[in-house]
C-alpha cells in the first residue's frame, strides 16, 4: 500500500510530520500567551520577538561561550525570561489597571523595537545552527523516514506542555495562579505576594517562548524575523482555542498544525490560509473560542 486517498503515503506522512512540528511550536507559544493573558490580562505581542531572542540566545551561547544545544535549552529560557521580568517590572506593571489595548500596543511596539534592533545587527538572511550530535540522523519507520531531531521536538514540546498543564491544574501553586486570575486582591489578602507571582508568571511565559526558539533554531535557522511570521498564526491559534484556556491552547496548537499539514497535501493553495478560515468560522459560531468560557 503506497497510496491513501490517491496520495502517496510518503507525502502524506511527511506533511503530517511537518504539521506536528509546526503544531509543537504553535502549542508552546500559545500556551505561554494563555498563561500570560490569564494572570496579567495582557496580550503579549512581544511573544514572537521573545521566541526569536531564544534562538539568538542559543546562537550566542554556542558561538561566544561554546555552550551547545543542551545548555541553550536550559539557559536561554532563563536568560530571556529574565529580560521578560525586567520588562514586566519596568513597563507592564503600570498597565494592569488600564484596558487590554494598552498592553497590546506596548508589547506590539516592543516587538517592533526588538526585531528592528536584531535586524539592524544581523540582517535578515538567517544564521545557521546545527542539530545537536545526539539527535542527528533518523530512522526508517517503513512508511516514512523520521528525522530524530523532529521526533525530539514533538515529544519535548508535548512533555513541556503537559507538565505546565499539570502544574496549573493539579498543584497548590497552580491553585494560587488560578485563584489570582479570578480575584487577585483576595488572594493577596490571604497572604500571597501576588505582584511577585505575576512577575514570575510573565517570566515563565516568556521562558516558554525562548524554549520554543531554541528548539526551532536547528529547524528554521536563526533569523531576526522568525517570530514575526509565526506569531500571527499563533494568535489565530489562541483565538480559536479560547484566550486563557491552558488545555485549549495545547490541543488547538497541535491540531491546527496537523490540519495545516494535511491541507498542504489535499489542497495546497489553501495551506497558508486554512488556519485563518477556521478562526473566522470559530469567531462567528463560538466567539469565546473552542475551549473558552463565557
Amino acid at each position: 500500500m503506497s497510496e491513501i486517498f490517491g496520495i502517496p503515503t510518503q507525502a502524506l506522512f511527511g506533511q503530517l510530520l511537518i504539521g506536528l512540528i509546526n503544531g509543537s511550536f504553535y502549542a508552546l507559544l500559545s500556551l505561554g500567551l494563555a498563561v500570560i493573558f490569564g494572570m496579567l490580562n495582557i496580550i503579549n505581542f512581544t511573544h514572537g520577538a521573545q521566541y526569536m531572542m531564544g534562538a539568538f540566545c542559543a546562537y550566542f551561547l554556542l558561538n561566544k561561550l561554546g555552550l551547545g544545544y543542551w545548555w541553550a535549552l536550559l539557559l536561554a529560557p532563563v536568560i530571556v525570561g529574565a529580560t521578560g521580568i525586567v520588562i514586566e517590572r519596568l513597563m507592564l506593571a503600570r498597565l494592569y489597571q488600564l484596558d487590554h489595548l494598552y498592553g497590546l500596543l506596548l508589547t506590539f511596539g516592543l516587538a517592533l523595537v526588538i526585531q528592528g534592533l536584531f535586524r539592524n545587527e544581523f540582517g535578515s538572511s538567517g544564521l545557521p545552527y546545527n542539530i545537536p550530535k545526539a539527535l542527528e540522523g533518523g530512522r526508517n519507520l517503513g512508511f516514512m523516514f523520521l528525522p530524530n531531531y523532529r521526533a525530539w521536538v514533538v515529544v519535548a514540546s508535548l512533555v513541556v506542555c503537559l507538565a505546565t498543564w499539570f502544574v496549573i491544574e493539579k498543584t497548590r501553586l497552580g491553585a494560587y495562579l488560578r485563584a489570582a486570575t479570578e480575584n487577585p486582591a483576595l488572594v493577596q489578602a490571604f497572604g500571597i505576594n501576588v505582584p511577585r507571582m505575576i512577575t514570575l508568571t510573565y517570566g515563565f511565559g516568556v521562558g516558554l517562548a525562548a524554549l520554543a526558539g531554541v528548539m526551532a533554531a536547528p529547524i528554521y535557522q536563526v533569523n531576526p524575523l522568525m517570530g514575526a511570521d509565526l506569531i500571527i498564526v499563533v494568535f489565530a491559534v489562541v483565538v480559536i482555542g479560547g484566550m486563557g484556556s491552558i488545555m485549549g491552547s495545547i490541543v488547538t496548537g497541535f491540531a491546527l498544525g496537523v490540519i495545516e499539514g494535511l491541507t498542504k497535501v489535499f489542497y495546497p493553495e489553501a495551506s497558508n490560509t486554512v488556519i485563518f478560515i477556521i478562526m473566522a468560522i470559530v469567531l462567528l459560531v463560538r466567539p469565546q473560542g473552542l475551549f473558552g468560557q463565557r
Binding site: A185, L186, Q188, A189, F190, G191, I192, V194
Partner: peptide
C-alpha cells in the same frame, strides 16, 4: 495586604 495577612489578620 499580603504582609497584613501574615501578621494574623484574615478577611
Amino acid at each position: 495586604s499580603n504582609r497584613i495577612a501574615r501578621l494574623g489578620v484574615a478577611f
